[in-house]
Every structure is written in C-alpha cells, then in structure tokens.
C-alpha cells in the first residue's frame, strides 16, 4: 500500500460533516469565501460557517434557483461562493446552473449533499442519482466526489484558494471510513491508487470506495489480484490512468452510487472506447432504475453496492468472461 493510505474502519465521518468543518477553516483563511444554503444548512453542515461568519452566510430559503443565480452574481463580483443543498435539489435547477454559473464560467462551488442511495430512508425523491450525468454535460464544469474525511478537507481547501472555474462537489449523508492519512495530497483530475494488483482494476468513487476495498480483499483471497483506484474527479476524468490500467489489467470495473448512465461508468467507457482499448468493462451502480426507501445498508445490498454484492458481481462477470 502506498504511504498516504491508512484505512481505518474505526474512524468514520460523513463527507458532508467533513465539508462543514473544512468550510469553517477556509472561512478564516479566505475572506472572499461566502456560503449560501436553501434551508438545509443543518443537513448540509454549512450551519457551522453561518455561526462563525454570519456576514458571509446567506440563508436563501427553499428557493434553489435564486440561490444559484445569487451565487453567480457574488462570483461575478469576485467572491468564491459555496452554495449548498441536497444534490438532487440543486442540480435539479439545471437550467439556472447552465447559464448563471456554467456559461458565465464563474468560481462557484456547487455542493450537493445526501448523494445517491446513501441518503436511505427518505427515498427516491431526495436521492441524487443523475447529478453526475447532468453536471458532466456542462462544458468547463468540474465534477468531484471525495471518498473520506481527509480527502474532503483537502479538496475543499483546494477549491477555496486554488481552482478557477465552476465545480460540482458530491457529498454523502452516510459515514465514510477513513482511507487516508495526513500525507495525502489532493490532485485535481488525478485518480488515487489505493492498492495495486494485476487482474482486475476497480475504479470507485465516493461512498462506494470502501465497500469496493472490502470486495477487493475477498477477490484477492480467491486469487484474483485487484487494483483499487479512487476516482475523486469524475470530470475531467484521469484518461492517462484509465488507459494505463487498461493495458496492465484484464478487466475494468466501475462502482458508483449513481445511475450507470452518465456517471463514472460512462466516463470510463468513453475513454476506453475512444482509445479502442479491448478490455471488458463492468459497470456497477444503479442500473437505470429509481431508488426507494430503506436503510443505506439495505439499499446498497439490494442495488448491488455492498461489499458482498460487489464481490459477487465481479465473480459472476469473471466466470462469464473466462
């Protein structure tokens, strides 16, 4: 394992919680950072910033389009707005994001929390399962999804002070196992190698990375040597790394808590197909269907994203191919 990896299931935190803490610390360092929320600051965890920096926090009420446009106006005036809501609600105002933020190419950071099946009991209406697809389709829009608390903190720091242009950040409601230590450095656009193997390369993102890691351990025991890569930047996708993996492995698997259409699986397949890489690809994720209510664990089990289900899908796929 590489030196920056330190997987510790005893230390868990939701990426929205890490985000909320990171926001307070960047608030000190970057006076141009402002935060907007649409009546979900307690859930998105932007509330910490609102208490520390009330003059730079804007409670916009249940009116996401207005929040998006207002953030664009702030960004056009030199501010770095972080605008926060559930992923489905903010990305659902796609047309406003398209013109006010994306076409203007402003430094807005759209924060979509409670992403994917991981929101659990609230069910499909609150569940962002198409947000990556929509945000990937906007020219110049970066699409990010951290996999643990440390990566979230470093990503948010990078976005506060170092990145030009609009970005969508996808965060989880559920706790995520710690994957990294403080030596970890966030590099925009670069996949992160968590473990290196030979046969199967698994590319996972966000809340599915640790489950994929557990699946890898089982596959390794079965003699199927696996690599595991955390894709925190879904756009621009790390093409070089994907093609390198395609050359050095026999299978590629993508794992995401999102519709397999338009998300990580699509992004990887585009890179492989354009290069003419003849390697089988298995896309695990929500198979173009709606989600439902249930605990996050039960939903991950039902929709094939639990460690056991990821393991079984890869085994079945492997048997079919050999």
């Amino acid at each position: 394992m590489t030196e920056y990896v330190n997987i510790n299931p005893k230390v868990q935190k939701a990426s929205r919680a890490s985000f909320g803490e990171a926001l307070v610390s960047i608030g000190e360092k970057y006076p141009e950072v402002v935060v907007l929320d649409a009546d979900l600051s307690v859930s998105t965890k932007s509330a910490g910033f609102s208490k520390k920096f009330p003059e730079r926090f804007f409670q916009m009420g249940i009116a996401e389009s207005n929040m998006i446009g207002t953030a664009a106006g702030l960004a056009l005036s030199g501010k770095t707005p972080f605008l926060c809501s559930f992923g489905c609600f903010v990305v659902g105002r796609f047309e406003t994001i398209r013109i006010s933020i994306a076409y203007n190419q402003v430094n807005a950071r759209i924060i979509g929390t409670h992403a994917g099946l991981g929101i659990g009991e609230d069910g499909y209406t609150q569940m962002a399962l198409e947000d990556i697809a929509l945000m990937r389709s906007l020219p110049g829009m970066g699409v990010l999804q951290p996999a643990d608390a440390i990566e979230t903190a470093k990503m948010i720091e990078y976005l506060a002070g170092h990145h030009k242009g609009p970005v969508y950040v996808r965060l989880t409601r559920q706790n995520l196992v710690t994957l990294f230590n403080q030596d970890y450095e966030f590099q925009y656009g670069k996949g992160v190698m968590l473990k290196e193997g030979k046969h199967i390369a698994i590319l996972a993102t966000g809340g599915t990375v640790y489950n994929s890691y557990l699946a890898c351990e089982k596959l390794d025991k079965d003699g199927l040597s696996t690599s595991l890569i955390n894709i925190h930047t879904l756009k621009p996708i790390d093409e070089d790394l994907i093609l390198k993996l395609a050359r050095s492995h026999k299978r590629i698997v993508t794992v995401e808590d999102h519709n397999i259409i338009g998300g990580l699986g699509s992004a990887v397949s585009e890179v492989l197909a354009e290069e003419g890489a003849s390697i089988p690809l298995l896309r695990l994720g929500v198979q173009d269907i709606y989600g439902e209510s249930g605990t996050a664990e039960d939903l991950y089990e039902k929709y094939g994203l639990s460690p056991q289900k990821i393991y079984e899908s890869i085994c079945t796929d492997h048997l079919q191919l050999t």
Binding site: R56, N66, G69, T70, G73, L76, S77, K79, E95, S100
Partner: peptide, 25 residues
C-alpha cells in the same frame, strides 16, 4: 456584459448577488 443572459428569469438573482457583494465590501 456583466453576465450572460437570455434564459429568462435569472438576471435578477444575479443582480442580487452583485448587490450582496457590494454590501459585504
């Protein structure tokens, strides 16, 4: 152009953001 526009209904929000920025500064 202070902002792109043409998809109706968005400019007033953007103007509001600019007004808030002036207020902060």
């Amino acid at each position: 152009m202070e902002t792109s526009s043409g998809s109706l209904g968005q400019g007033l929000s953007i103007a509001q953001g600019m007004a808030l920025a002036a207020q902060i500064d």
